[in-house]
Amino acid sequence: MLALLIRDLRLATRAGGGFGLGLAFFLIVCTLVPFGVGPEGGTLALIAPGILWVGALLACLLSLDRIFALDWEDGSLDLLATAPLPMEGAVLVKAAAHWITTGLPLVVAAPVFGILLHLPSGAQGWLVAALLLGTPALSILGAFGAALTVGLRRGGLLMSLLVLPLYVPTLIFGAEAVRRGAAGGDGTTPLVLLAGITLATLAAIPFAAAGALRVNLR
């Protein structure tokens, strides 16, 4: 399993791997929003938690089809399915690789984007914590959507339609935690619920995704 993780990370960081594209996309979202709503710091601070979370969601979505599509095209997925490694493990590892290349950079860079959007400094900690706890769920749910649509031509748009509704609970609790933090309150309750959802998806979704992959491989 470690070998698969290392290979996926290596592929992502080599030329053409698309590493950092999600981060650049996140930056563009955070740059465009002030053009749309106006430069007043008060307005921006108000909507910053939502924009940051929606931006993270979309940045994550952008690279989802890479999770399985490339391995499907070159036959690696067939070989992984016949390997001693259980399919559920492969799904988990590939989602982890996706998180390390897209989710983790977002978590690290989020405070900078928070400054761009005038997020109150008291909320920065909440933002990082919420993204850290929430983005793994985005990756694993995205892996499920990618597994459902892996064999399809033009599966990307369909995948967004399937995956985005699954992101609703994560988005609600994640943004709520930051919003409470920005209002000077305590975001522990939504943060705990967010962590609960992430843990539950990490435990259950690999089975669904592996089932979908097996169906798509036959």
Binding site: F144, L148, P165, V168, P169, I172, L193, I205, A208, N216
Partner: peptide
Amino acid sequence: DLTGVMCLVGSVFAFLSRYAAHFW
């Protein structure tokens, strides 16, 4: 098969979203 799996997962998340929306 795939829509069946999607329906199962979707049901859980529709249910979750409902409670999340109440929280929100």
